[in-house]
Amino acid sequence: MVRHILEVIGCKRPVPLRLAAALGWLKRTRFKCLFVMTLLCLGLRENYPFSNFPMYSSFNSRTSLVYLTDAQGTPFSTMGFDLLNSTLNKIFYGWRRAELKKTAGSSTARVALAEHTAGEALLRYIDRHASVHPQIRNLLHGLRVQHLTIRLEAHELVLQTQTLATHE
């Protein structure tokens, strides 16, 4: 394949008609970069520097997020942990997805277990994060991972919070 492409570009050897036509067109078009970048981004998806840019590509009537509080439930600024809340959530949901694949059972029980495990894993991540950010070590005791659910019900936003994990 690669040899064929090189030969077509160099016009040194006849190649299969369709491939030759496609590459010939690509060589002639002024928009080759647009075409190639579009294909690479859609094909390689989330592989830096490529991306299919899936942010807000679909919407649901329900969503959720996690945030950090102290033992009394007072929220911490995530930036105080040298993290963004969106990063914290992406890490949490990455683990949640992995846990959901591992566990079996009824849907509600599986989700609850996966969220609890992902919450604990997030606390361990923050523990390790503290090893390169000493300023956050004194915030760890009693640190809680809270889960906020947002639902759209009859044109109204409904919120619900629960604690997923607490740092010892």
Partner: peptide, 9 residues
């Protein structure tokens, strides 16, 4: 780091 950002691509 387990979270993909879309600022720099």
């Amino acid at each position: 780091q387990g979270a993909i950002q879309h600022a720099y691509q």
